[in-house]
Design a protein around this nucleic acid. Structure first.
Lengths: 175, 175
DNA sequence: AGCAGAATGCCTAATATTTATACACTCCAT
DNA sequence: ATGGAGTGTATAAATATTAGGCATTCTGCT
């Protein structure tokens, strides 16, 4: 629950110049900036430090620019820390890659060279977007609405899918 | 819960040629194909027909290719039907636009001219991805885990945020 | 080290919700 | 028109939730 100003961000890129540039860009926005050149150290670092947000480059092997590596690390991070927002970073404005990344749960996608204001904005936004915890009943109500919508209004089917009795569904909807 | 084969898809594009092409591409994949040239008729149509999936073009005003219109309609659709997958369609492979679209909840992003196999695959995938409705208790459990994680394990705080009593939190966690 | 406040684990009794089951009614397609 | 599916409503029994309380254990702070 860090409120943007006292949050820790982790920047991962194999190029030290990029890490330095990121530090300069972000040093007045986040309380703490951690950097890594090797993505295979991300999970280890996260066990030791309370990381709130990650900016992750997508290409680490020289000569390979498919972004596949970045997607792999994205998945690894999200598997272990599903709520920590990950913003992807790439030098290639590749639509297919951006789409894949976001579909796999990235919070946003930034291309190099970045615009400092835009980068800061996207990172802050990603952090704030998952800051507030929804009340249990509100989350339940939203899920129920979605389920009913998916069943095109068929309450019996919705109840079955949700794993509750039809009457319970009626009850919950009255509130 | 239409299982891909008996699903209804709605294709929206101002160009009738595109609509015809889409029909030919999709006629053996979906049970019913609805088409619209005017996006402002989408919500009305959805009240009358059980639409399971939407393929939405992003540019409707001639000479305007920002995709802003498409994003607007995407939001309008998602506000009313947050759960119906919307796949975006555009002639311009614009990363920024794709990212905006996905962040606003689009299921996928396809560029014209499309590859028929890819289009079919993405549409089927979008449909299947939200085919399974999570059981209410599973969704609740996942949300609780996230909340506790965010409170760094402080159960009292988590309970307060979730809007339930501490004991209830214990109960729910035992299951 | 020691203290105060917070968090935990567990208890009770009063409320409330959920479940299984049932019944009459409406739609809809055969 | 008939059967199947969905709706709206009702009941009692089983469960869950709540507020409140009470020792005990952490924690942070001085």
């Amino acid at each position: 629950m860090p409120t943007t100003d006292h949050a820790t961000i982790l920047v991962v890129d194999d190029n030290p110049t990029i890490l330095t540039a990121a530090r300069f860009c972000l040093e007045n926005t986040f309380a703490r900036i951690l950097t890594l050149q090797r993505p295979d150290e991300i999970l280890t670092l996260m066990q030791q430090e309370a990381v709130d947000l990650i900016l992750l480059d997508m290409n680490f092997s020289l000569g390979v620019n498919t972004g596949r590596e970045g997607l792999m690390w994205l998945q690894a991070i999200r598997k272990r820390h599903p709520d920590i927002p990950v913003v992807l970073l790439t030098a290639y404005a590749d639509v297919e890659l951006a789409v894949k990344g976001l579909k796999q749960g990235a919070a946003d996608f930034v291309t190099k060279p970045w615009d400092n204001d835009e980068l800061r904005h996207k990172l802050k936004d990603a952090l704030e977007r998952n800051a507030e915890v929804e009340r249990l009943d509100e989350m339940e109500a939203a899920h129920i609405r979605r389920a009913i919508d998916r069943c095109h209004g068929n309450m019996s089917e919705a109840a079955k899918l949700l794993g509750v009795s039809r009457q319970t569904l009626y009850n919950k909807m009255k509130r």
